[in-house]
Computed example of a mutant assay.
Amino acid sequence: VVLRGNGRGFMAGGDLATLRADPVQGAIDILTPLNAALQLLAQMNAPVIAQVHGAAAGAGLSLVLMADYVIAAEGTRFNLAYINLGTSCDVGASWALPRIVGVRQALEIALLGEAFTADDALRLGLVNRVVPGAELDSATTALALRLASGPTLAYGAMKRLMRASIDRTLPEQLAAEKDAFVHCAGTEDFRAGVEAFHQRQSPQFVGR
């Protein structure tokens, strides 16, 4: 799954006109379906790539944080921005940001509300790659095609293990890893992968 914005930027934040007209109900109307969508993206087996250009601010940056892999164009600007509107964050930012950069750095980004560059985002681990703007589409497509040919069920298991690991003890995580591995061991993809290894060939995964 590729998340990207049309026009000048990835996403500059929520619809402030709607929030201005009816702040409380507007927030509920925006966040309820958006939160449901984010949970679906996190739970699905397919990897989620964010292709980012222009600006990723407010909920736009929150969406970036929730992706599994992020490619940003040079010149992209990031800003959590919520504090500049007098509100706390949403769309999973308070869950994802401390896990990526640590609590102290997350608080600096959140409390100061300052813009930062794609290079800053790369240094902080908020994006995986920064590419020239002219190469953004091709770099994203190449990654998406590579992932699309992979073992879908194993991707999902890996995503869920990684996301849950911080909230589990080591024994709990070891048990979860065992369960996931045993489940994957019963798939067609695992059998294909093992056979390809022995045949010294590239595996042909089918997502089952």
Rank of each mutant, 00 (worst) to 15 (best):
A106M: 00
Q204P: 00
M158P: 05
I166G: 09
R146P: 09
E108G: 08
F190D: 13
I166E: 10
V127S: 00
R191C: 04
A121P: 01
R123N: 12
L122P: 05
C184K: 07
H183T: 12
A110G: 13
D167A: 11
A164W: 04
D137F: 08
D179W: 09
Q105L: 08
V130N: 00
V206C: 13
S165T: 07
M158S: 15
R146T: 13
A118P: 03
L112E: 10
Q173K: 04
A106D: 05
L147T: 02
D120R: 15
F205L: 03
F181G: 02
I109Q: 12
T152L: 12
G125I: 05
I109W: 10
G207Y: 07
G193K: 08
L161G: 01
G186S: 07
Q201C: 10
V182M: 06
I166W: 06
T187I: 04
A176V: 02
L170E: 12
G193L: 03
L153P: 00
A154S: 03
D137N: 11
T187A: 04
R200E: 14
T140K: 11
L136V: 01
R160M: 02
F116P: 14
G125M: 01
N128Y: 02
L136G: 00
T169W: 10
L122C: 02
L147V: 06
E135M: 09
F205I: 00
L153I: 05
R104H: 05
R160D: 01
P203I: 01
L124A: 05
R146F: 12
R104E: 11
R191Y: 11
A115N: 14
E135L: 03
V101L: 05
L122H: 13
N128S: 08
P171Y: 10
A192L: 07
D137E: 09
R123I: 02
N128A: 14
R191L: 06
A115E: 15
A115S: 14
A106E: 01
P171V: 00
V103M: 14
D120S: 15
G125V: 04
Q204G: 09
T169H: 05
F190S: 12
V130F: 00
L107W: 09
I109F: 03
T169G: 06
V182L: 07
I109K: 06
H183Y: 08
M162S: 13
Q105I: 05
F197D: 07
I100S: 10
Q105Y: 01
A176C: 02
P151A: 10
G113I: 10
A176H: 04
A144S: 08
A118S: 14
F181M: 06
